[in-house]
Amino acid sequence: MTATTGTDDGRGGRDGEDDRAELARLLPPATGFALPPGRHEHHRERLMNQIDHDTAAASASAKDRAPARPRLLRPSFLAPAITFALAGVLVAGYSAQGGPDLPVRADSGASASERAGNAQPVALVLNRISDAAAKSHAGPVRYDQFVYVRSQVQDGDLTGGTLVTGPLAEREIWYAQKPGPQKKLGQIRQDGETFPINAELGDTDGTREGVNRPTYRWLAALPTDPQRLLDHLTALTPESDTQEHAQAVFDQIGHLIRETVLPPETAAALYKAAALIPGVTEAPGAVDAVGRKGVGIARVDARYSWRSEWVFDPETLAYLGSRTFLTADTEIGGKGALLSADAVVKRDVVDEAGVRPQD
């Protein structure tokens, strides 16, 4: 049985939905350090697959080899980031991106004049990036097509309680563009495995277009006035005790530019909106997951000692990738320890999931 047919699974639940809902209900409230958006879904899906496997195995003993349910996958576009504490509960035994709480750090102490001094140069840089994005020929993307992105990704491993940087891995995503609530959103291929992307947990009727499922059509409908766009994204980004809200909004924009095809006007507005976020600065010497150097844009979450950087091609100003790393010594790792990184290798539009575009 699949998680989208709506049939009874023999335990009074619909295709295991009750199992996952009960698991979510029993977990403690999320506290501590928040992961960057979109960086936890691979490990979480491996966990969900293991839960399905174990449940099926238990059922087999009781019901004479009942068949296992297929794998489940959540969208890669998950704006509300899973916290480190929650990830530690969920991914025990896996190479995870989560872990124990990071110590709360005091604010950076930068004065208002210092913050204002940083605003002008980064605004000029982001305006240049915005102008370049506005001249791109990306899209449009038809409803029956898929956005394809191939990346090199690297994640921190906290299986042993200490942050260890994992190896680079190739990740491919095919993201469906169909309008309206959808239960099948595409697929991901990583670490030699291919997973379907099912609707987000709790979306029994399918996941709608939105910040957690940013289709080309949804992105094209966003406000193109930078302040209105920033206000809109700020309202869509949940408040959290585990992350500065301004940092969450910055990461939300980073999540929108990472694995989508952006309409040129929307892309231009997103970069100008990012320039309005307090604390956003230039990042000289920024590099992506494969070491490509470029124009860097960054923000530091001073409370939790981590820094998010975006990297752009120094000539074309096209997005190259991102990095997130610790900015101070913590219980799980030293200053500079990598939490996650990516490098976009290919971005295109294809007619079928699982099919690579022609180079």
Rank of each mutant, 00 (worst) to 15 (best):
R299S: 00
D329V: 06
G296P: 04
S308T: 12
V311Y: 00
A328M: 04
E309Y: 04
V344D: 11
A343S: 12
E331K: 08
L339C: 07
P314L: 01
T324N: 14
G333N: 02
R299M: 06
G296W: 00
V344A: 08
A328V: 05
D342W: 06
W310H: 07
F312R: 04
L339Q: 14
T327Y: 06
T324F: 07
G296C: 00
R299P: 01
V344Q: 09
V295L: 02
F312T: 09
L326A: 09
V311A: 00
A337E: 06
W306C: 03
D301P: 02
A328D: 12
L317R: 09
L339N: 10
G336I: 08
D301F: 00
G336A: 03
D329I: 10
L320R: 15
S340K: 06
D313H: 09
T330M: 11
R323D: 01
A302L: 02
R303W: 04
E315D: 15
L320E: 13
S340M: 12
S340A: 15
L338S: 13
K335P: 01
S308R: 10
R303C: 01
A298C: 05
T316C: 09
E315H: 09
W310G: 05
A343I: 06
S308W: 06
G291N: 05
K293H: 14
R323K: 11
G291H: 05
V295Y: 00
G321E: 14
D342Y: 10
L326T: 07
W306S: 02
Y304W: 14
A328Y: 15
D301S: 04
A318Q: 12
I332D: 03
A328I: 00
W310V: 08
S340L: 11
T330Y: 12
E309T: 14
Y304N: 13
T324V: 13
T324D: 13
W306G: 02
D313I: 01
G291V: 05
L317T: 01
V344K: 05
E331S: 13
R303N: 13
E315Y: 08
A343H: 11
F325I: 00
T330D: 06
G334Y: 00
K335F: 06
